[in-house]
Write a protein that binds this DNA or RNA. Structure first.
Length: 257
DNA sequence: ATGGTCGCGGTGCGA
């Protein structure tokens, strides 16, 4: 099983790149974040046409939005937290594929240190931890994938001193993300790649991609039971170098199931 | 390094 996560920053403006990437990489499952469109405008027919008949999306106008695109059936679908209101931002979609529970999230950005949105981000990550405590066990085959919007460690940041008080790498965010991870998750990129510096996001400003000034904020985390079956995990920088790219690159993991 | 560039939607906001 090959699964990928990609914050596409608008599925309709990125559709050609997503189709081309799926045709060349052939993941079994692709989890998207920031689809930025209402469900009626999600371009599912073109994805079905290239061999992805199972598509579930949970979007809204202009902001947020998550989706799961799969070769195989998606069972027991869930949209947002069970206790979310109907008007909550659409940031979580989960389903079971080939016996693996896949939880695809777009963690809030946080905007500015100490702001209401920053507190919302910290609270959202705490709720995500509680969601796993309540609904899952370590022996389950479980994946948490998506844009976690936090770089956990200094090796995940091009310049830790520059980033130490900036969004994605502040102390409270890192504490929140480490608390989430202490549910028992294994960071698959680190399991495979040890201390290698590699990023999944580069700002559109300052030609940051060309200078490789990025952050590793997109993740594939597995329960211990599933991490044992992971054979590889990597970041595909290719799409980030195309014309009119998303600011994020896909992260990919492979499993022997 | 306090600007810079995107997508969405048709203005300014969020990232």
């Amino acid at each position: 099983m090959k699964i990928a996560t990609w914050n596409v920053n608008g599925i309709n403006s990125r559709l050609a790149q997503v189709l081309e990437w799926c045709e060349s990489e052939r993941p079994d499952v692709l989890c998207l974040q920031e689809s930025k469109c209402v469900d009626a405008k999600f371009p599912h027919s073109k994805l079905r046409a290239i061999g992805y008949p199972h598509i579930e999306f949970h979007g809204e106008k202009a902001y947020n939005g998550v989706a799961i695109i799969s070769k195989h059936p998606i069972e027991d679908l869930q949209r947002n937290f069970p206790d979310d209101d109907g008007d909550a931002p659409r940031r979580l979609i989960a389903g079971t594929i080939d016996g693996v529970r896949v939880v695809n999230v777009y963690v809030p950005h946080g905007t500015k240190f100490g702001s209401d949105k920053f507190m919302f981000k910290l609270d959202w990550i705490a709720r995500l931890r509680k969601y796993f405590d309540t609904n899952f066990e370590l022996a389950d085959r479980l994946l948490l994938v998506g844009d976690l919007n936090v770089a956990p460690h200094e090796t995940d940041v091009w310049n830790p001193r520059y980033w130490q008080d900036r969004m994605h790498f502040t102390k409270p965010e890192r504490e929140a993300i480490h608390n989430l991870k202490r549910w028992g998750f294994v960071d698959l990129f680190r399991q495979i790649n040890d201390e290698e510096k590699a990023y999944s996001w580069w700002s559109h400003f300052h030609h940051d991609f060309e200078k490789d000034r990025g952050l590793r904020i997109d993740h594939i985390w597995a329960s211990p039971a599933l991490a044992d079956n992971c054979t590889d995990c990597w970041i595909d920088k290719g799409p980030r170098g195309l014309e009119h790219p998303s600011d994020h690159a896909p992260v990919v993991a492979e499993f022997k199931l």
